[in-house]
Computed example of a mutant assay.
Amino acid sequence: MKRIALFCSAGMSTSLLVTKMKKAAKAKGIEVSIDAFPEAAMEKELDEVDVVLIGPQIKYLLNKLKKLCDEKGVPIAVINTMDYGMMDGDKVLEQALKIME
């Protein structure tokens, strides 16, 4: 099973998005594990993760977080601001799946 990890400042705002992404995955018959964490926990949460998405509010940390992800061979991207703002679980799930290809 593929594992998607979302990170934001405290892991709170991405939690709602995770719920919507899980609903979208279930509707499409995709088996995937999706979790949200605060960015401060990234280093210890990267094991067994297939892709990392970060909230747009912490995109200023992308270079720092990319180094952590590169060390583990995990791709990382910033969630599209519009999709994040609209809490569009379907589009964010598609973004994650595309990155994992």
Rank of each mutant, 00 (worst) to 15 (best):
M1C: 03
R3P: 00
R3C: 07
A5T: 10
A5D: 00
C8Q: 06
S9I: 13
S9F: 13
A10F: 02
A10Q: 07
G11W: 00
M12I: 15
M12D: 01
S13L: 04
S13I: 05
S13T: 15
S13V: 08
T14F: 01
S15Q: 07
S15F: 07
L16R: 06
L16G: 14
L17D: 05
V18L: 09
V18M: 07
V18T: 06
V18G: 10
T19C: 08
M21C: 03
K22V: 00
A24V: 06
A24Q: 07
A25C: 11
K26E: 15
A27R: 12
G29P: 02
G29K: 03
G29C: 04
I30P: 02
E31K: 09
E31Q: 11
V32K: 01
I34L: 11
I34M: 09
P38I: 12
P38L: 05
E39P: 01
E39Y: 15
A41D: 06
M42N: 01
M42H: 00
E43D: 12
E43R: 13
K44R: 14
K44I: 10
K44Q: 05
E45Y: 08
E45S: 15
E48F: 07
V49L: 04
D50Y: 04
D50I: 12
D50E: 06
D50C: 04
L53G: 08
L53H: 08
I54V: 11
I54N: 11
G55S: 10
G55F: 05
G55D: 07
P56L: 11
P56Y: 08
Q57R: 09
I58K: 07
K59R: 15
K59M: 14
K59E: 15
K59V: 02
Y60D: 10
L61P: 00
L61A: 14
L62Q: 13
N63Q: 12
N63D: 15
N63S: 15
L65N: 05
K66P: 03
K66S: 13
K66G: 07
C69W: 07
E71T: 04
K72T: 02
K72S: 11
K72F: 08
G73T: 03
V74G: 07
V74Y: 06
I76M: 11
A77N: 14
I79E: 04
N80W: 12
N80Q: 11
M82P: 00
D83T: 11
M86D: 00
M87K: 08
D88E: 12
G89K: 04
G89V: 07
D90M: 09
D90I: 00
D90S: 15
K91S: 13
V92S: 05
L93H: 06
L93F: 05
A96W: 10
L97Q: 02
L97R: 06
L97V: 07
K98Q: 15
K98W: 12
M100P: 13
E101M: 09
